[in-house]
Write a protein that binds this DNA or RNA. Structure first.
Lengths: 195, 195
DNA sequence: GAAGTGATGGGACTTGGTCTCATCAGAGGC
DNA sequence: GCCTCTGATGAGACCAAGTCCCATCACTTC
């Protein structure tokens, strides 16, 4: 019997989510999470810088997927099309097998503002990376920032629908639909006069 | 001589900003802030729920200004014009006399991600309130969310320029300019085909 | 002058998070 | 088969954030 069971990181993530659902985020101690995973508190903080971070794995992966997706988009793609490519890339991460996990995670995040703050920071990072990648591609400001922001909005809305209980549709479908709806709505904001 | 010097809250805010600039945010203790303000640590947490919150006063005021500004906008205003009204309302808070304080505060926030998280949460709250106010006004989705998001982007960019060192221009000017630039850039994102 | 109110001080306590040192399993070299 | 090196872990001391409770004191009101 090995002293070290494998996948300590995963075990911590699963134990954390279980405990958060049972006792709430604030009602759960880092030491409890470690204990359920068969580890010590100090080991928890060796794997995650934060108690919050245990719910935010794989953010670097998304970051790279986004940047690569824009770099790989054809030169003929419009800024919003390039942003749409990031959503398609994200769909490879949000497969159907992750949906129930994402749902459970979401119920926890919704109940705690520290977690919402962390989520906003991560999303802001992805948005900034998207805007940078667009600028690298030659898209000028303020178009690059605007396209990234609209992409982020489509991402958030698509994610919310992907997780909404009766839903069975793919993330990719929902994301493209959201982006299409947003782009269709652009003319409705038209600014005729500014005082 | 009164036992309680007046303006405990303000004194704490000023002491905190001073200490953060001298020693950094993480290098400063809540107890130190309280001490410089002539108060006790427990009193600090009676005035601010967080160590972070000491840098985020007056958020409720902005919230109300935003909501009222949209409610007061003429019925003929387009969604982006209504969003622009929130920026004009914000300008009453960001007067020239607050600029140096805002600059100092910004240097602290830029150095710490916890503070950036908090700032993102506050801004997200304002954005959501703006979108809600637009919906109340009869603006349908997704236009309402989109207009609020663009307003928030204009706000962020205007704020950044307002505190950028050589600047002397009013926040109101900069905000309207940013919003105009963004709305002018909208056609450049046009999504011709979505795969 | 007595009672009430509100802001404060002080200190105990829990938990997040850091740091250091010892320990132990496995890989590879001899 | 033994030795050493490495890497993941455990244990515990330690600091600061944040909570809580209770005593204290200035000011107000009756």
């Amino acid at each position: 019997m090995a002293r070290w069971e494998p996948n300590a990181r995963e075990r911590l993530q699963n134990s954390a989510l279980e405990l958060f659902l049972e006792q709430g985020y604030e009602g759960t101690t880092a030491a409890q999470i470690a204990e359920r995973a068969g580890l010590a508190k100090s080991t928890f903080f060796r794997h995650f810088t934060d108690k919050r971070e245990v719910l935010f794995g794989g953010q670097e992966l998304l970051h790279d997927l986004f940047v690569d997706a824009i770099a790989a988009a054809p030169a003929s793609a419009t800024p919003l099309e390039a942003a749409g490519a990031t959503l398609a890339a994200a769909a490879t991460v949000f497969g159907p097998e992750r949906r129930t996990w994402a749902r459970r995670r979401q119920t926890v995040v919704e109940q705690n503002s520290e977690l919402q703050e962390r989520e906003l920071l991560k999303l802001a990072g992805l948005t900034a990376a998207t805007a940078d990648a667009l600028r690298t591609r030659g898209v000028p400001d303020p178009t690059a920032g605007l396209a990234a922001e609209i992409g982020a909005l489509a991402f958030r809305q698509a994610f919310a629908r992907w997780i909404a209980p009766p839903n069975q549709r793919d993330f990719a479908d929902l994301a493209q639909e959201q982006l299409r709806e947003l782009s269709a709505a652009l003319p409705t904001l038209d600014l005729t006069t500014v005082t």
